[in-house]
Write a protein that binds this DNA or RNA. Structure first.
Lengths: 207, 207
DNA sequence: CGATCTGTCTACCATATGGTAAGTGACCGG
DNA sequence: CCGGTCACTTACCATATGGTAGACAGATCG
């Protein structure tokens, strides 16, 4: 899985450009529905160039997953580490996910695609992201033990938070049905609604 | 879109069997990734039989969408109509969605697939389901006005509820990452967690 | 009985797919 | 200046895809 190659004129190597395009396509159209031919055309490249860097479509998928898992983990680890305690920290993390969604929606889209690709692709991703889940549940449990938050099953709570955030970020068509246009303004409103929901579920009144 | 045909030995017409199989495939593998050939093999039928009932793959998709929208709407309208007021009603609806998810997970899966298929397929679905959204928001707003529930933006609240429920029901792989196996027992635990979350967000203490 | 209609089938086809084999030109160390 | 590697290419190929054309058997009906 060479992530190298000569840096192109615009400063991005071909293999990197391929990864970028593949991520977007896998995340929006789905892995099976994405074709190497279409990818190549979009990049103004011959299909064989793709197969030169990534000897098969499956290897390309793995490379996309690995890179995305790293990027995702990095962004979340960062926001999990910084900021205060208790509710402030939860708020910070949610906000950072929304920022990520605005900047690189494909990353969130890929997470959703994971469900479709069974073993081993999904396992690969799950394994890569699991430490993050551990950290997050650990944090939530500690805060609950310390009495800073209402008691919940930490793992299920995290799953619920995840579902809500990802759903409100990625279900564009459903959004339309609910009369929400996918604009930046709407994004902020959705973020605030989520935060309000979580607040009432987590914050202990009079603290 | 003939939904007729001679009723087969087992009491199910061929066109209906095709619709069933197509729904499952579209919902789990995705529309583009589903092939008529594979569908036919699974049904022990020749591909041309599919194309006899549904003259093209796209028409088949539309038929699947229409039928699913009807079934979905029926299930939800029912639970929206019955049961008490305020929180009890919200609880009833959520529970009915979980029941539906246990019985026919493909229906929920198809909803998620909608995001991928742009116009006109998604529009078709959105249009069919919109009245339901209207009813639901109307109900929520009335309850808030009557002071039975904490105030929220009804549409955004509904979107959040939807996201959480659908996410916790369909993201099997993410579930695995969170250490939740997709068993019936786990389903109940997830349902209860969601209900608890919504309770704290909606119920007015001491009412 | 013969004509027609209905449901399913066999026989094809153009195109798209992932992938193999074998080049081609630029650059680079000796 | 020359052999070799690197990045990318053209030339193919077997298979799978959605779809067309038309045959065939059984039911229906005048």
């Amino acid at each position: 899985m060479p992530v190298g190659g000569r840096t192109d004129v615009d400063g991005v190597s071909t293999s990197e450009r391929i990864l970028d395009a593949a991520l977007v396509s896998f995340a929006t159209r789905g892995y099976e529905a994405s074709s190497l031919d279409a990818l190549a055309v979009g990049l103004d490249i011959r299909k064989q160039t793709i197969l030169y860097w990534f000897p098969s479509k499956e290897v390309l998928l793995e490379a996309v997953i690995d890179r995305s898992a790293i990027e995702l983990s990095a962004a979340l680890e960062a926001s999990l580490t910084t900021a205060g305690t208790g509710w402030a920290r939860v708020e910070a993390v949610v906000k950072s996910v929304f920022r990520l969604a605005a900047r690189r929606p494909e990353l969130l889209g890929l997470v959703r695609e994971m469900g479709r690709l069974g073993t081993p692709a999904a396992t690969r991703f799950v394994t890569a992201v699991e430490p993050l889940v551990q950290r997050a549940t650990g944090f939530l449990e500690a805060e609950m033990d310390a009495g800073h938050m209402k008691r919940h099953d930490a793992r299920l709570l995290l799953l619920a938070i995840y579902s809500t955030v990802i759903g409100m970020l990625t279900e564009v068509e459903v959004l339309r049905a609910f009369g929400e246009e996918p604009t930046a303004r709407s994004l902020v409103r959705r973020r605030n609604e989520i935060l309000e929901l979580l607040r009432s579920a987590l914050v202990i009144d009079g603290a």
